[in-house]
């Protein structure tokens, strides 16, 4: 009896276990679902809404990939990961792609054996202080108490910054963004530091956002992007070029509104648009997908600019400006290699 109970547990486990094959792309197609690793909840980037539907800037990328590969933007299993669990989840194959705000660094790429397939948000670490503290530069923060979320590159940047400027500080490590806000608002720390986008999002939720200022120093480069496992280049290509398709779409003026008509027209004077949308050439075949894969990806939430505007842009409560995340033609850093 005892043994059978145990066995039943393992039998149940067996049902959940899926057979593995060589390529993630084939796995995803066979499974019919994309396992997508996200945050446990960061409003604007990835958070469940009141109906339990995941929404946000990072989530939109997942939906685009699912649409490109499976032709269904909802065929996604969202796996929320913490700073601690995200890399194991990816390395062990629990998730196919990690879109959580993860900074592209040398050691993550080389030592942890992950492949960053591009950058979907250029961020940097900033500081937020209450206005009445009268601080105008991060270099004036000698002796301050700094609230910081653990498990991110933020704490390493912070240590480096204060060491480089030879000033002292007191770190207060906290687990979640919500607790960080609470500590900061109660005055348990003088400064709250995290990625500038996160600070803006956090400040937007305050009762009195004007009582807090973001300091001018951005102390780090935080290129955030989706990542996959090392060594599975076919799958890496799918994720990389889905992201590039969204970026190129904005550059070339493909929007969710004119997408259908562009596909219909297949105007010979715009060859690159045609190649992206699959009405010319065999790009889809090369990547192991249908010819209209990119069109499907763009159809979900529009191009990069539309996704940005809808989730974190200036019209939203998060209210982020494009800044570095503008197209290269507008002075930003977004630059997709050509679809050729």
């Amino acid at each position: 009896m005892k043994k059978t109970l145990l066995l039943s547990a393992f039998a149940a486990a067996g049902m959940a276990a899926g057979a593995a094959s060589a390529g993630t792309l084939d796995d995803v197609k066979a499974r019919g679902k994309l396992n997508c690793g996200t945050n446990t909840g960061l409003v604007g980037f990835a958070a469940p809404d009141a109906n339990g539907e995941w929404q946000g800037f990072d989530v939109a990328l997942c939906r685009a990939i699912a649409a490109a590969v499976l032709d269904d933007p909802n065929a996604i299993e969202f796996v929320s990961t913490t700073g601690k669990t995200r890399f194991t989840a990816l390395a062990s194959g629990e998730i196919d792609v990690l879109v959580r705000n993860t900074t592209w660094t040398f050691s993550r790429d080389a030592d942890l054996k992950f492949e960053f397939t591009g950058v979907n948000y250029y961020d940097g670490q900033g500081f937020m202080v209450p206005k009445d503290l009268g601080v105008s530069s991060a270099k004036e923060l000698d002796g301050a108490t700094v609230c910081i979320q653990t498990g991110t590159t933020t704490e390493l940047n912070l240590a480096d910054f204060f060491r480089a400027n030879n000033i002292s500080y007191e770190p207060v490590p906290i687990e979640t963004n919500a607790e960080g806000q609470q500590q900061y608002l109660a005055g348990a720390c003088d400064v709250y530091t995290t990625d500038a986008s996160g600070l803006a999002a956090t400040r937007a939720t305050f009762e009195d956002p004007d009582a807090h200022v973001l300091l001018p120093e951005i102390i780090s480069k935080e290129p955030l992007g989706p990542l996959v496992r090392h060594g599975d280049n076919e799958w890496g290509d799918v994720v990389r070029w889905t992201l590039n398709a969204l970026i190129s779409a904005e550059e070339l003026g493909i929007t969710s509104a004119n997408l259908a008509s562009l596909v219909e027209a297949a105007d010979p004077s715009t060859p690159e648009i045609n190649r992206i949308l699959g009405t010319e050439g065999t790009l889809g075949e090369m990547i192991g997908l249908d010819p209209d894969w990119a069109a499907r990806a763009i159809a979900v939430g529009g191009n990069y600019g539309e996704i940005f505007a809808k989730n974190i842009g200036e019209e939203t409560p998060i209210g982020l400006a494009r800044g570095l995340n503008a197209q290269w033609t507008d002075g930003g850093l977004l630059y997709s290699p050509p679809f050729r």
Binding site: A13, A17, G18, T85, T88, G93, E94
Partner: peptide, 29 residues
């Protein structure tokens, strides 16, 4: 629970994906 969460996956056959809840049930049991 850390084992269930971050380590156990390494000890299972490659490609197996256990539910987190199932891994946690095994560890708590």
């Amino acid at each position: 629970l850390f084992v269930a969460n971050v380590v156990l996956a390494y000890f299972l056959p490659p490609g197996t994906t256990f539910d987190l809840i199932l891994r946690v049930i095994i560890m708590i049991t």
